[in-house]
Design a protein around this nucleic acid. Structure first.
Length: 581
RNA sequence: GCGUUCGUAGCUCAGCUGGAUAGAGCGACGGACUUCGAAUCCGUAGGUCGCAGGUUCGACUCCUGUCGGACGCACCA
């Protein structure tokens, strides 16, 4: 499959070298998709910069390059405009051929990565014994989309769900359930783990002797005491069932094979500390083993360390994260490490990465990236909470999404069988929640608004799903399977057809952008523009009543490519499509 | 105090590694259904891109300063 942007860039580079010799050959041709249809399909913006460098007028430079340009039959029009932009309009035959190719290759023309990397992606990370709430939703949804996109590119994606399943709070929790009479291996209905946690916490704060027993219980847990460990394990297992339900509802890739909680790294902590101490990278300060990083300063201007080993001999999250990064680089041999956690943890991960570099684990050839995201706000601009001021349980949120979507489907399509109503409600409701989260630039906070995310207007999942439904409706009407016309030449003569075809060609570039920037909203923007462009076509270019059979076949072929684009694009975001709704 | 991050139309947001006259949706106003799904589409009005400098042929984009919001800064994740 040809990437038209890359192809043009190569042709321009050649022409630049031919026109101005080797000293100009390194100039970036700056081939981009034209933002405005009046400027053709793609534009090359090298002339202004190169003209400056060569001391020539930009338009002269552009003319000279265009004279050397060999595009074969790709372009129907080349023009030098404005200060020296070179506008390229794709030839109909070439455009039709390219769209036919991409509709049939199963990838909408997106290339597989030149080199398959092993990517460890860390996301979701709920806490055991606490229910998942909105705080976990962004990491889960964004991480899932990134895992899908990177996997689609042909990378080997290792999902890591860094569960909060270890630490001092488990001393408290295990002690509490033990005192409630729990015995390992008993059959029991656990019910509300959250409530157990709250009870334990309340006792911990109120009863000093319980607090003391809890501290001893932590020691027992860390020391491997059989009964303590067994009870802890049961609590963890129970939580995993809860997580699995949420992931099932949400439709994300995470499964039980992806659980690598903090406890997984626990056995490595001592060795990590020993290694850092032995190599002299970490030093003792105030009784704690610390890894000081001069670039990170605290309130008083003195360096803030990573605490490798606490003063009491225990280990905190710094050590766990150091152990995890060492393990992922040294043992898993990852090429790329991706951490999808909230923006407040930005400095923490910058320190972990710097610490890993100082320790000699993270070196050139391995990329470590934190993928920060903002918080979810209510319509009052404050953190999204229930009216009672509590954090919203993820289960409740998803249940409401399904309920609201079901009400819409029931109202619009009352004749659908019950089962289909539910299936559509699931695709639309869950899709709306995911898309609302993914379609904004992730670094920004975003305002949670049911009505907006479930609307059929604007940049929403229902709008995109509906566009897909309309495409499929055409095929239903035509009595043609959309898959049967994939690979056929589309009609690209009308301006709306041309624009739609051109937009499809950019998919591969968009996927690459998402994989590089780890910003899924770029794919959302492409999808929204695809749907909008399809609607323009839909208004102006009837398929069933096309002027002749050739145009009709060409329009069906174009529709099939659009269907592929919508379906594939949404699936990379973890969002389902339905054939009617 | 230091650092990170955000500030684009009344509201919610795009604007790709600086590129042409800054784009959408909602809301407002005005249109389009015996015609492939009107669950949609088209048009009009609406912005000194927080502010001030700077770099550049060219700045919403980069740099400096400044104002406003959010967040972070040693043994909790």
């Amino acid at each position: 499959m040809t990437n038209i942007q890359a192809e043009l860039a190569a042709a321009f580079s050649k022409a630049i070298a031919a026109a101005f010799g080797p000293e100009a050959a390194d100039a970036d041709p700056q081939v981009k998709w034209a933002a405005d249809a009046r400027h053709g399909d793609l534009q090359a913006n090298f002339a202004m910069g190169l003209g400056k460098r060569l001391g020539k007028a930009p338009r002269e430079v552009a003319d000279a390059v265009v004279a050397k340009l060999a595009l074969g039959d790709l372009a129907s029009k080349l023009e030098v405009a404005g200060p020296g932009f070179v506008n390229v309009t794709l030839a109909p035959a070439a455009l039709a051929r390219l769209v036919a190719e991409l509709s049939a290759d199963g990838r909408i023309g997106a290339a597989r990565a030149a080199r398959s990397e092993r990517v460890v992606i860390d996301y979701s990370a709920p806490n055991v014994a606490k229910e998942m709430h909105v705080g976990h939703i962004r990491s889960t949804i964004i991480g899932d989309a990134l895992a899908r996109v990177l996997g689609f590119q042909g990378h080997e994606v290792l999902r890591r769900n860094h569960l909060g399943d270890w630490g001092t709070q488990f001393g408290m929790l295990v002690e509490h359930v033990r005192e409630l009479g729990w015995k390992p291996g008993q059959k029991r209905e656990i019910g509300d783990l959250n409530a157990l946690y709250r009870e334990a916490k309340a006792r911990f704060d109120a009863e000093s002797d319980f607090a003391e027993r809890s501290r001893l219980r932590v020691v027992a847990l860390q020391g491997g005491d059989e009964e303590t460990v067994a009870l802890w394990r049961e609590l963890v297992e129970e939580s995993k069932h809860h997580f699995a339900e949420v992931y099932e509802t949400l439709g994300v890739l995470l499964d039980s094979g992806d659980y690598y909680g903090e406890s997984f790294y626990n056995p490595m902590l001592g060795d990590v500390a020993a290694e850092l101490e032995r190599s002299g990278v970490a030093t003792v300060s105030d009784g704690a083993l610390c890894l000081f990083l001069p670039a990170f300063k605290g309130k008083d201007g003195s360096p803030v360390p990573l605490i490798v080993r606490k003063g009491d001999g225990g280990y905190g999250y710094d050590t766990t994260d150091l152990a995890a990064i060492r393990h992922r680089i040294r043992d898993l041999k990852a090429d790329r490490l991706v951490y999808v956690t909230g923006a407040p943890q930005k400095q923490h991960f910058a320190m972990i990465f710097e610490g890993a570099r100082v320790a000699g684990w993270l070196s050139e050839g391995v990329r470590a990236e934190h993928v920060p995201f903002g918080s979810i706000l209510g319509d009052d601009g404050k953190p999204f909470r229930t009216r009672a001021g509590e954090s919203v349980r993820l289960q409740d949120l998803l249940a409401e999404a399904l309920e609201r979507a079901y009400a819409i489907v029931a109202a619009k399509s009352p004749d659908f069988p019950e089962e289909e109503k539910r299936a559509v409600a699931r695709a639309v409701g869950i899709g709306a929640v995911k898309y609302a989260d993914l379609s904004n630039d992730r670094i920004k906070d975003y305002v949670f608004d049911w009505d907006r995310m479930l609307a059929f207007e604007g940049n929403t999942a229902p709008y995109l799903q509906n566009a897909y439904v309309r495409v499929m409706s055409i095929f239903r009407k035509a009595g043609v399977e959309h898959a049967s016309v994939l690979g056929q030449a589309p009609s690209v003569d009308a301006p709306e057809e041309h624009a739609l075809a051109r937009h499809l060609l950019a998919f591969g570039d968009v996927v690459e952008q998402v994989a590089r920037s780890l910003e899924p909203h770029r794919l959302c923007t492409w999808l929204y523009e695809l749907a909008a462009s399809f609607h323009h076509f839909y208004e102006k270019c009837p398929v069933m009543t096309a002027p002749d059979e050739t145009v009709k076949r060409g329009r069906l072929a174009l529709c099939a490519a659009v269907a592929e684009g919508l379906e594939r694009g949404l699936s990379l975001l973890g969002i389902a499509t339905v054939k009617r709704m």
